[in-house]
């Protein structure tokens, strides 16, 4: 357990010291969201209509941006070898890396989302549900993303391939996540959507840990 948290702490310290990756994905997220009003026009009713979808799509894309480095940095400098020969099972190691990725790359997006939602003219009840849906749904992005990151870890330009592998698998999260917010805005119960999101997150916890661990074993072999 101490080792597990030690790993997460090291990744957090690295993210804070390097800083740039976190800031970059945050800037990317904001810029993508800002592009939409410029593209479709500033009518508030249109923006309110597309807001949930825009925020979710922007979150998926920003997540992709940091995904390819999830294991690659450790793979390139040989740290992954030393992590693997250590006493933690590889599945648990993957979970630690996923948690660190989520905390450093996705949590900042969730924090800034209410501000962006306001700029898209989203009503208050929608903003609450948006944050909640992101909190419940985004772990899936890190977990499924870990599979793609592990499969492409040894490739020099794996980023583009990674998005082709991972984005289709993100579709259910996008659909239920945006539907939850739209339901809340339309004064309908959002709970079923949120429960479905939670179910997907739990499912991808199991699938993601084992599949990513298998893919990492392969990359080292």
């Amino acid at each position: 357990m101490k080792r597990f948290f030690g790993l997460i702490r090291r990744d957090l310290v690295l993210a804070v010291r390097q800083g740039s990756a976190v800031t970059l994905s945050l800037c990317f997220f904001v810029i993508v969201v800002v592009l939409f009003p410029l593209g479709v026009g500033p009518e508030l009713s249109v923006l309110a209509r597309i807001g949930p979808g825009v925020l979710w799509v922007a979150a998926l894309l920003s997540c992709l941006l940091t995904l390819d480095r999830m294991f690659q940095a450790d793979f390139e400098d040989g740290s992954l070898d030393l992590l693997i020969i250590g006493p933690l099972p590889l599945e648990i190691l993957v979970l630690g890396k996923v948690i660190a990725h989520w905390l450093t790359s996705i949590l900042p997006l969730i924090v800034i989302t209410p501000v962006l939602a306001l700029s898209l003219n989203m009503p208050t009840e929608g903003i609450w549900t948006m944050s909640l849906a992101l909190l419940i749904g985004t772990p899936t992005l890190s977990l499924i993303g870990a599979i793609g990151a592990a499969l492409t870890v040894a490739m020099r330009r794996g980023g583009v391939l990674l998005s082709l592998l991972v984005l289709p698998l993100y579709i259910p999260v996008l659909i239920f996540g945006a539907a939850a917010v739209e339901a809340a805005i339309g004064q309908l119960p959002a709970t079923p959507h949120l429960l479905l999101l939670a179910g997907i997150s739990l499912g991808s916890l199991v699938v993601g840990m084992f599949a990513a661990a298998a893919a990492l074993r392969l990359a080292l072999d």
Binding site: R3, D77, G78, S79, D81, L82, G86, P87
Partner: peptide, 24 residues
């Protein structure tokens, strides 16, 4: 191995302490 497994932004003792803690 050939690779150094050192994180450039961590100090030498931070790097080593992490590995020492990880391997007990």
């Amino acid at each position: 191995g050939h690779q150094d497994a050192l994180k450039p932004v961590l100090t030498v003792s931070e790097n080593l302490s992490f590995w020492a803690g990880f391997h007990g």
